[in-house]
């Protein structure tokens, strides 16, 4: 139960579709603050995650500050745009009120061995973020090997990432346990060397409570209890919340639940 509530509180409730509208984002923002009102005492999610164009809408809807606003940027999801566009994209999202920026790395450059380019790009975006925290999406599904995942993690961490994140959610495979584990190891090694904590966000494919708990166990075993808060660990997910809610209600009532009883926004 403690684990399940923790999961809820670590979710970045996400909508990243071409067909997103202010209406859709408004509904999601309401859900983010009212997960399941008929069961009191539940936490809110950690943040909502939207496109830059929707940050303004979300800012208006999320009056309290408990739910943060994360925005993807840098020509998400492909990252195939000139630097100027990526910087502008980032600055726009921040100026609209984003608390967190989820950027994508240039995978093509990375795979071509241009690691300095990748590093410099992350550093530049970090600067553009100002006070917003920077999550760096490695898109591990395109990196093909765990060695690459590790190398990309190290680059992102050294370039100034506050969080490293597995995937955009647009590419399969996304946040597999092996990938997350590899990234957690990079975070741990960095911490052991420098004492600096880096956050972790697996995203894509974690849609059940069970998978989410697997992830929490990994975090606990690899990094320790101090990472078990939404300051240092997030789930990027669109449908995880309701599954967790169903499990919480099942634990509470002893009866298996139906999705019919949980609002979909």
């Amino acid at each position: 139960m403690q684990g399940l509530k923790m999961v809820l509180n670590m979710i970045d409730l996400t909508t990243l579709e071409g067909k997103d509208t202010p209406g859709k984002v408004k509904q999601m923002c309401y859900k983010a603050q009212h997960l399941h009102d008929s069961y009191p005492g539940l936490p809110t999610v950690a943040a909502v995650c939207v496109y830059p164009s929707m940050v303004g809408v979300a800012r208006k809807e999320l009056r309290s500050n408990t739910v943060k606003i994360a925005s993807v940027s840098t020509a998400f999801p492909s990252g195939q745009a000139p630097m100027s566009v990526k910087l502008e994209d980032t600055r726009f999202a921040v100026s609209e009120g984003a608390d967190e920026i989820d950027m994508v790395i240039s995978r093509g450059k990375f795979l071509a061995g241009e690691y300095n380019f990748v590093f410099d790009e992350i550093a530049a975006i970090k600067e553009a973020c100002g006070k917003a925290r920077l999550k760096v999406i490695l898109e591990t599904g395109e990196l093909s090997t765990l060695d690459n995942v590790r190398r990309a993690s190290d680059i992102a961490i050294h370039a100034g990432a506050d969080f490293i994140k597995t995937s955009t959610g647009k590419i399969q495979p996304a946040a597999t346990m092996q990938v997350t584990y590899t990234m957690l190891m990079a975070i741990r090694d960095h911490y052991d060397r420098t004492g600096i904590m880096i956050g972790m966000k697996p995203a894509g494919g974690i849609s059940t409570s069970k998978l989410a708990l697997h992830n929490l166990v990994m975090v606990k075993e690899v990094l320790g209890d101090q990472w078990l808060s939404n300051e240092w660990f997030r789930f990027g997910a669109s449908s995880l919340a309701n599954d967790v809610l169903m499990q919480i209600m099942k634990t509470e009532t002893g009866v298996y639940q139906s999705p019919d009883y949980f609002s979909m926004d």
């Binding site: 403690q2 684990g3 923790m6 929490l216 166990v217 606990k220 209890d225 101090q226 078990l228």
Partner: peptide, 11 residues
């Protein structure tokens, strides 16, 4: 059983 001085989330 685990390190006895640890607090937080227990299985």
């Amino acid at each position: 059983t685990k390190k006895s001085n640890e607090t937080g989330w227990d299985y």
